[in-house]
């Protein structure tokens, strides 16, 4: 845990909320070009997802209307024209066999992908930080018990269990919320372990000892003294979890246990598009490149954020 040690030696850690520290982080981030590119692309994608109704209205399409006249019915229902029927009416072409607009479906798919990724993150952070804090701060027995629980969470065969769980929950349960819960419930172990490590190292520091001696309650010490010190590391880690969550959602949708029709998500689109990759490459490229771009941008941003928060521990070792 060299990162943790580095953090402990960093005098800024205990006062991470200070404006000076924030300015320093921002300055470091701004000079990190890949991270800035990631930030811009992420911003554009999130904005596009938020504005999906507006953008599809601008295009004049929606996600569910069939356009069978645009399909070559005799050829398996493949879109007529080059690039999967892309043009002024359908900016990214249409879906084979239905003629639904791909731009609209990809945009609304982005909403699901982002919502699930962020929602999952909230679940992961709540669970992970709570368990990590309790394990690190709660004494020997709590640590031993919760520590094994964390081990269990990390070593759990997540994919199999997630598929089973998604298959048995009634269909009336809102699917994106279910996806957040399922992915979140199986992926909080890392956050918990990191939080615990941070708490353990901060616990013995002088300012915590001072608070204890001045009569602060354990709850107050945990939440007001230790948690703020641990958060920068945890949040940095969280930023890296985000692209992972998107991939998890896509994976589950790809396996057919994601969103229900007629809703779209990138994973669902990829899943139906795979058989078409030779006949209609556009159908695969739209969700595939969207997912690639988003995951890459998030990863660059998260990596840059980590470097900016903690230059000494940066794995990339820049400047």
């Amino acid at each position: 845990m060299s990162e943790v040690l580095a953090e402990v030696r960093d005098p800024g850690a205990a006062v991470s909320g200070s404006p000076a520290r924030a300015r320093q982080v921002l300055r470091r981030l701004r000079s990190d070009r890949p991270a800035m590119a990631g930030l811009i692309v992420t911003g554009v994608l999130v904005l596009a997802a938020v504005l999906a109704p507006l953008l599809t209205a601008l295009e004049g399409q929606d996600t569910t209307t069939f356009h069978t006249q645009l399909l070559d019915s005799a050829r398996g229902g493949v879109p007529r024209g080059a690039l999967g029927g892309a043009g002024a009416d359908h900016w990214l072409g249409v879906e084979p066999t239905t003629g639904r607009d791909l731009f609209a479906r990809a945009l609304y798919g982005a909403r699901i992908s982002f919502a699930v990724a962020f929602g999952t993150l909230v679940v992961q952070l709540l669970l992970g930080v709570a368990v990590g804090l309790a394990a690190g701060f709660g004494g020997r027995w709590a640590d031993a018990t919760l520590g094994r629980l964390i081990d269990l969470a990390i070593s759990f065969p997540q994919l199999m269990f997630a598929i089973a769980l998604l298959a048995i929950v009634p269909q009336s349960f809102p699917r994106p919320v279910l996806l957040m819960l399922v992915i979140g419930l199986f992926n909080w172990g890392g956050t918990a372990r990191l939080t615990r490590g941070q708490v353990l190292s901060l616990k013995s520091r002088d300012y915590v000892a001072a608070a204890r001696l001045s009569g602060a309650s354990p709850g107050r010490i945990a939440l007001r003294e230790i948690l703020p010190g641990a958060l920068p590391q945890v949040l940095t880690y969280a930023a890296i979890l985000l692209p992972g969550n998107m991939v998890s959602e896509a994976g589950l949708s790809f396996l057919g246990v994601g969103v229900h029709p007629p809703a779209s998500s990138w994973g669902q689109m990829l899943s139906t598009a795979t058989t078409w990759f030779r006949a209609d490459p556009m159908y695969v490229l739209v969700p595939g490149l969207s997912l690639l771009t988003a995951v890459l941008a998030f990863t660059l941003l998260a990596d840059g954020l980590r470097a900016a928060l903690d230059p000494k521990a940066s794995l990339r070792g820049r400047r």
Partner: peptide, 15 residues
């Protein structure tokens, strides 16, 4: 019911 859409859903007029 839109039979043309149903036919296209299973692969179009050849299928």
């Amino acid at each position: 019911v839109d039979r043309q859409a149903a036919v296209n859903a299973v692969g179009g007029s050849s299928l």
